[in-house]
Design a protein around this nucleic acid. Structure first.
Lengths: 257, 257
DNA sequence: CGAGGTTACTTTACGTCGTAAGGAGTCGCA
DNA sequence: TGCGACTCCTTACGACGTAAAGTAACCTCG
C-alpha cells in the first residue's frame, strides 16, 4: 500500500508537522497520550510489521483502542506523514565537505541506505507530494549543502539531487522488500529462488538461448559478503557500482563548466 | 499497497506466467473466461483505479463475481504477477544501436518513462523478487543487449542496469503519484501546493533562512512545458537532467577501460 | 440415452481494515 | 455546583481478500 501524503486539511497537517499546537490549560481529563508518543509507537509498529500496520495495533501498544488515536491525529494518512517526518530526524543535518563533495555525498548515500534498512516502510510513503515537514527539509538541505558549493547551477543540481534520491531509494527498496517478502512468506531468498528457478529450468529449458545478453550479464559474479543472503549481496553490489557511476557523472559535470 | 510477488505455489505461478497450461478437452461447463481475459480486465481496472483495485471490481467488469476469478487464478498476488508480466509485453524487445549505445539507452529510458505513465500501478509491484515472467526477461534483455557490446564487465554492467532501473522507476513514480494523488483528492497540483505553502509561510515565516541551501536549489527554474502541471514539470526536468548525469557516468566507464 | 463425475460460477460467511457516531466519565472555570 | 469541553470507549458500517458449500452445465462411459 502506497500511502498518499497530505490529503487532509492542509492547516491541520502543517500545524501537526511543525508542532505549532499550543499546549494551553484546557478543561476535560488530562490527555494520557500525545502526538509524539503516538508517532513513536506507530514507528515501532511499522518497523516490525511494515506499512500495513493497523490503527488498532498502534492503539494496543499504547494500552488504548484504535479510536483513542483519533483525538490526537485526524487519520491514518496524517499519522503516516508525521511518522515520515519524525523518522527523518534520525539523519544527520550536516556533512563535512573538507575532503571534497564526493566523500560527503557517499556518506550521505550510505546513511540513507542504512536508514531505509531500519525503516523500510518509509519507502512506501508516496514521494509525489512532499510531506513538507521540518526534518524532510533538513535532509534535502544537508545534501544541497554538499552540492551547492560545487558551483553547478540550480537547474543541474536539481537533476542530480533527484537522481541520487531515486537511486538510493530504489536500491534500498530492493533489499527492504527482499527482507519483507522473506519475513512474510517465511522463505529465505535461497529457498525462494531455488524453488522457482528449478521449475523454470524444467518448463523452459533453453532460457539462456532465448535471452543471451541476460546470460552474459550474470557472469563475473562473486558474493561481496558470504554471510548475507543471495539477493542482498546483489543489492549491495548494485548499490556500490551504481553509486560509483552516478558520482562519476556528477564529477564530469563539476569538472567542465 | 506494495504487493509482494511470488508468494504462492511456485509451480503454479511459473506455469501461469509462461502459459504452460494445456487447453485440453475437459468435462464440465465451457469456461466463459480465461486467464488472459482476466489479466486484461484487471490491467484496465488498475490503470483506472490504481493498485488498490479489488477482485470484485475485476469480476464485475467481466460480468462475474469476484469468486469466479479464483477458478483461473490462485489469488490476487498471483494475478498481479500476471498483470505485471503481461503489461511488460508492450515494451520493445530490441533497440537499434547503430548510432551508439547512448541514444539507444535514452530511447529505452523514455519508453520506460511513458510506459510507467500508462500503467502507474506497475511501480507498486515489489521489485525485490523478480516475477520471472517472459516479458520481464525480455525488457532486461533489451537493455542488456544495448550495454553488453560496450565491453564492460558483467559486474559493472549490473550496477549500471540497476542504477538505470532505479532512476527511471523513481522519476516515473514521482509523476505517477502526483497524478494519482491529484485524482484521489480532486485537487490539482497547484491548489495542493498553494494551500500548503501558504499555511507554511504563515506558520514558519523564515524558512529560507533556516534552509538556505534549499533556497538556492530552487532558483533558476523555468517551466519546460507551460501546459503541464507544476510538479510534472519538475519531474520532467529532473528526469532529463538526472539521465544526462547518469549517462555521463556510464560514458566515463566505457571510455577508460 | 442416462448416470456419474468434473467443472464454472454463485451465494454466503468470516475476519480484517479505517473510521463515523454516540455515550460515559473527567476536569477547568463560571 | 453545574456547564461545557475534553479523553477515551463501545458499537457499527461498508470495504476488502478469500474459504466453504451449493447449483447448474457439460463430457464421458455404460
Amino acid at each position: 500500500m502506497v500511502v498518499y501524503a497530505g490529503q487532509g486539511d492542509p492547516r491541520r497537517s502543517i500545524e501537526l508537522l511543525w508542532r505549532a499546537s499550543v499546549a494551553e490549560q484546557r478543561p476535560g481529563p488530562k490527555p494520557g497520550l500525545s502526538v509524539d508518543t503516538i508517532v513513536d509507537a506507530a514507528i515501532e509498529v511499522a518497523d516490525e510489521q511494515g506499512m500495513a500496520f493497523s490503527m488498532r495495533a498502534v492503539g494496543e501498544r499504547l494500552g488504548r483502542t484504535a479510536m483513542a488515536l483519533y483525538t490526537y491525529v485526524p487519520g491514518k494518512n496524517e499519522l503516516v506523514d508525521l511518522m515520515y517526518d519524525r523518522a527523518m530526524a534520525e539523519l544527520p543535518a550536516t556533512y563535512s565537505t573538507e575532503d571534497g563533495w564526493r566523500p560527503a555525498v557517499t556518506r550521505w548515500a550510505h546513511d540513507m541506505w542504512e536508514f531505509y534498512g531500519r525503516h523500510p516502510w518509509m519507502l512506501q510513503v508516496s514521494q509525489a507530494r512532499p510531506v513538507l515537514g521540518p526534518h524532510e527539509f533538513a535532509v534535502i538541505e544537508a545534501l544541497a549543502a554538499i552540492l551547492v558549493p560545487t558551483g553547478l547551477p540550480g537547474r543541474e543540481l536539481r537533476g542530480i539531487v533527484g537522481a541520487l534520491h531515486y537511486f538510493v531509494r530504489g536500491a534500498a527498496q530492493t533489499v527492504a522488500e527482499a527482507r519483507a517478502a522473506g519475513r512474510a512468506t517465511g522463505e529465505g531468498d535461497e529457498e525462494w529462488w531455488y524453488a522457482r528457478s528449478a521449475v523454470l529450468a524444467e518448463l523452459e529449458p533453453d532460457l539462456d538461448k532465448k535471452f543471451p545478453m541476460l546470460h552474459l550479464l550474470e557472469n563475473d559474479r562473486e558474493p561481496i559478503d558470504p554471510e548475507l543472503p543471495y539477493l542482498e549481496n546483489d543489492a549491495v553490489e548494485n548499490f556500490r557500482g551504481g553509486l560509483k557511476v552516478l558520482l562519476d557523472g556528477v564529477e564530469g559535470a563539476v569538472a567542465k563548466p
